[in-house]
Design a protein around this nucleic acid. Structure first.
Lengths: 195, 195
DNA sequence: GTTTGCCTACCTACTAGTAGGAAGATTGAC
DNA sequence: GTCAATCTTCCTACTAGTAGGTAGGCAAAC
C-alpha cells in the first residue's frame, strides 16, 4: 500500500521531477495539473504560490536527505562505507534515470533568479551536505581509512563539486556510466593504500 | 571603439548573460527588448524563433571557445601552462561576476527540455572541450609534466566535471573563492612532484 | 528597387493567481 | 445518536499579465 500518498505529496513528487527536468521556470501549475488529474486551482489550495510550493519541496528534500545521511552514519558502517553508499545512491538514480539529478543542484544553477525564500533553502541543503561529508571524511582520517591531502572541509567541497559536476556531465553526454567513471576514481583516491 | 557591436551581437550578448543567470526558460524576447532598447519584433527579425536564437548563441560560444583553446595551444606554452590559463579564465569570470557560469553548463542542466537543435550544439561544445583537455593532458604526460593515474580521456572528464561542479558550488554558496579552492588542488594533483 | 533594420499593432496560447461554490468528512452541542 | 456548523478538498469560471510569434508598413542603404 505504498501508493496512498496524499495529494500534496503527489504534487510535490511531480513538481520535483519537473524541476529536475527543466528547472524552476521549466514547469507550471498546468503541467502538474495534467500529470495528476487535478485542476490548477486545487494545487493553489495546497500551495498558494509557486514560490511556496518550491520552498516546501526543498524543505522536504532537505529533510529526506538529512534523515538519509543521518541514518547512514548511525548504521555503524565505516566512514568508507558511508561514503560509498552516498555515491551508490546517486549512481542508481542516474542509471535508472528515475531522478538523474539533484533538485538542489538544479535550483542552485538558477540561484540568481530564484525567489529568496527558495534560494536560502537551497543553500541550507548544500550546507548540510558539505557538513556531513566533512564529518565522514574527518572520521575516516581518524580511523586511518582515508588519507587526505587537504583539510576535510576543503576535500568535502571538492568531492561535492565532483559529484554534482559528474551528474552534469553524465546528463550532457547522455551517458549514465560517465557518472561513476568520474566519481569512483575521486573516491578511490581518498582511500589509504592498504585497500 | 569596441562598442560598435552589431545589433544581432548585442542581442546574443544580452541573451547569453540572461541564460547564464536563469537558463533557457529564464529569459524572454521582452527581457532582451528592454535591455537593449529595441522592439520585440525587431529581435524576431534577427532571430525568427527562440530556438534559433539560442542555437546561434551556442554556435558562437562554441566557436569562441574553440578559437580560444586553439590559440592557447599555439602559443607554444607548455601543457601545464595551457591548463593553467584555462583555469585562470574561469577563475576571473567567476570572481568578476561577469559571466560567472558557462552558458553550456547552464543549458546542459536543462538538456531534457531543450529543443533538439540546441541540445545537439551543447553536446558538441562539451565534446570539443573534452577533446582539448584530453590532448593537453596527453601532451603533458609525454613531456613528463603530468603524472595521471587514469587514461587521459578519463582524467579529462574528471577535470571537466570538477571545473563545472566548482562553478555550481561557488554560485550556490555565493563564494567566488570556492571555485579556485576546489579546482586548484585538482590541477596540482596532476603535476609531477618536481613542480 | 530591392534588401535591411526597425517599427506599430496585433494574435493566440499560456502564466500565476483569485472568487466563489459544491460535496464530503469532522467536529461539537444537545 | 442526531443535527448543525465548520473544515477540507476540489471544482468551474475568471482575471491580468506575459509568452513566443506574425502582418504589414516605413525609411534609409546598397
Amino acid at each position: 500500500m505504498k501508493s496512498m500518498a496524499s495529494t500534496s505529496d503527489k504534487i510535490l513528487d511531480i513538481a520535483q521531477s519537473l524541476i529536475v527536468a527543466g528547472g524552476y521556470n521549466g514547469f507550471s501549475y498546468a503541467d502538474i495539473s495534467a500529470a495528476i488529474g487535478i485542476r490548477k486551482a486545487s494545487i493553489h489550495h495546497h500551495f498558494p504560490t509557486k514560490a511556496e510550493l518550491v520552498s516546501m519541496l526543498v524543505d522536504r528534500y532537505r529533510k529526506q536527505a538529512e534523515a538519509g545521511l543521518q541514518s547512514l552514519r548511525e548504521q555503524a558502517a565505516s566512514p568508507a562505507d558511508q561514503l560509498q553508499f552516498y555515491i551508490n545512491y546517486w549512481q542508481s538514480c542516474v542509471e535508472n534515470a528515475s531522478q538523474p539529478f539533484c533538485v538542489c543542484a538544479m535550483l542552485a544553477s538558477e540561484m540568481q533568479m530564484l525567489p529568496e525564500e527558495v534560494a536560502s533553502r537551497v543553500r541550507a541543503h548544500f550546507q548540510n551536505l558539505a557538513g556531513w561529508l566533512t564529518a565522514v571524511l574527518q572520521a575516516g582520517v581518524e580511523q586511518e581509512l582515508f588519507r587526505l591531502d587537504r583539510r576535510p572541509e576543503e576535500q568535502a567541497q571538492m568531492l561535492m563539486a565532483s559529484v554534482h559536476g559528474a551528474m552534469l556531465s553524465a546528463r550532457a553526454f547522455g551517458d549514465p556510466g560517465l557518472f561513476i567513471a568520474i566519481v569512483a576514481p575521486e573516491v578511490a583516491r581518498l582511500r589509504t593504500a592498504d585497500r
